[in-house]
Design a protein around this nucleic acid. Sequence first.
RNA 1: GGAGGGGUGGCAGAGCGGUUGAAUGCACUGGUCUUGAAAACCAGCGAGGGUGAAAGUCCUCCGAGAGUUCGAAUCUCUCCUCCUCCGCCA
Length: 425
Amino acid sequence: MLDPKRIRNEANILAEKLRLKKFDLDIEKLAILDGQRKALQLETEALQNERNSKSKLIGKAKAAGEDVSEILAGMESIKKDLESKKEKLDELQNALNDYLQGVPNIPDDDVPAGDDESANKIVDTWGSPAQFEFEIKDHSELGEALDLGLDFATATKLTGARFVVMQGHIARLHRALIQFMLDIHTNEHGYRELNVPYIVNAESLYGTSQLPKFGEDLFKLEHEQDFYLIPTAEVPVTNIVRDEILEAENLPLKYTAHTPCFRSEAGSYGKDTKGMIRQHQFEKVEIVQIVKPSESGAALEELTKHAEVILQRLELPYRKVVLCGGDLGFGSAKTYDLEVWLPSQGTYREISSCSCFTDFQARRMQARWRNPDTGKPELVHTLNGSGLAVGRTLVAILENFQREDGSVQIPAALKPYMNGVEILN
RNA sequence: GGAGGGGUGGCAGAGCGGUUGAAUGCACUGGUCUUGAAAACCAGCGAGGGUGAAAGUCCUCCGAGAGUUCGAAUCUCUCCUCCUCCGCCA
């Protein structure tokens, strides 16, 4: 959520910036609503004040044994008046709040303009795609051909479309990737490893802004309480700081967690129907940082680098792109996508998305730090990125390290995790 | 699942219908004292919001929500959550 004060004071500037994100800020509607709010709030609070001071008078008078009927006389009308005003005020504030909840974050100044992904800018390219002397296969062909490999048919029986069963060496490779990623982030990049709930409440989803706008992407549980399966570890991990005031010396907080992610993938029916690219359940190693506002720009660069290291160690060719305004996520001020080379598609596909949310999530969560310069609680900045999406990393390895006979070489960096297995066949 | 007891400021812990946003202690910040530190003493010290140029001022918040009342941290109801005991269980 944006700062309501800022919207009040700089509506035109913000509207201009939000146009980059293809969002049309309704300044007029906001001005009207806020004008009504202001008037009504003043009246309501004046009435509350009157009620409070008269009630205190009654208390005093009673203690002194005096007659209170005179003071009591006007109270009934104040009460009624207050009740109706309060109700209207609540309605107004809800309407304002609903609107503000739907306003996306302001893009950073260096975010390129553009309507869709075609306007994203390539920042960096690492490695070069291998040249194959034979006809290449895609990951599902490769995986299904393996004796102990990918088994989509069984998963369909067990559950339905967009799930997979991994067997034997592939399952091990999947597990090895998780260990490998977590080890690097904890040992080399300074993140604390967390194990978190895979089910969260609605409040947490509001905090990181999956709700109220993106509820259709979530799996909701049938339960007395509003419980949801997490769509990403970002939700439980970032919400750790919800309603907290952090001490400056404890910042930055750097967390990593491996979790499954559950997405209903509503509205993506035609896309990536084959294979493991888009599943209802996949696993991810997430990295999250909670930082002082002045440090969030540098933190995004660092965090993205941390995700890149994984790709480099795995010898997977990739490129780094900065998302243009139109492609930027709802809460993000700036996002780098890391895209890995997929030989079967002859293109780069997203394998990590690293974003800085500035104070957007922090305001929703009331996640603050005590600024020693002011002594006051101020909002933190939050960042997160995939480091990396495990299923897609597995796909990339299968495809990039495939050999003519359909076997797959394991990248050297994973050898310590594979119990001697060097080739999948 | 059953039975009982709790949830108050950074922490501990009073308050159980009226001048209580909340005693007291610890912690923290500033000051006095001291060569310096400690101790002692004095003062300050929750969060969110409105309004205002500012000083200030007003409103809201004692797990959450609803209710009773002129007035609720205090009374009633529902929910959440924690602890102890019993049962079941990976």
